[in-house]
Amino acid sequence: MLTGNERKKDILIVRLEGELDHHHAEEIRKSLDELLEDSSIRHLILDLRNLNFMDSSGIGVFIGRYKTISKRGGQVCITNVNPQLARILDVSGLYRILKVYNTVEQAVDGIRGEAV
């Protein structure tokens, strides 16, 4: 589920918590899409610090939101990726389209750095 989100100008920061499997994917997808209806959001940072489990259902969720954001010319960043998540992201090729940062602050700086 999503716990707390934060806006920094055109960046939306969302924290994912718990488990992202097929059962929870629909709820997470809906919540994210509702937030992304605000067209002033250009970049999305997904903080995975408290995400305890993810399987390939999460890959579908990430790719779908990437499509929305890339149409706006923005970036999708993920932060605080644990080793298990890293392997799933790696086999799925998501590293080619998502940017990975250690912390939310670094992701914000990264987006700002490229936007100039």
């Binding site: 399987d55 086999v91 799925s92």
Partner: peptide, 15 residues
Amino acid sequence: ELERSGMGFTVMETF
């Protein structure tokens, strides 16, 4: 249409 990634078997084979 379900936004499935098609990576299920690949993940099983990897892990």
